[in-house]
């Protein structure tokens, strides 16, 4: 699953640690999600999208070719 967290973080001028604190996870988890090594749960994906005030599918893109 691809995501645009890095882009949204840059738009909000937010560090990985900052986003992690806002959504209640560790910085390593944000890093793993950004690098595509870990797919977040629906709840965490919703929390991230809510924090950026966008829809989940604006942040996360299901790449069916890769899946």
């Amino acid at each position: 699953m691809k995501n645009k967290i890095k882009v949204f973080r840059a738009m909000h001028d937010l560090s990985q640690e900052g986003l992690a604190n806002e959504v209640g996870v560790t910085r390593q988890t944000v890093l793993a999600i950004e690098n595509g090594k870990y797919d977040p749960s629906l709840i965490l994906a919703a929390r991230i999208a809510k924090f950026f005030k966008v829809r989940i599918d604006d942040v996360f893109l299901l790449d069916l070719i890769d899946e």
């Binding site: 209640g24 560790t26 965490l44």
Partner: peptide, 11 residues
Amino acid sequence: HEVIEDERTEK
């Protein structure tokens, strides 16, 4: 106070 465990560490 800080997060030391989350869903990724649980997994």
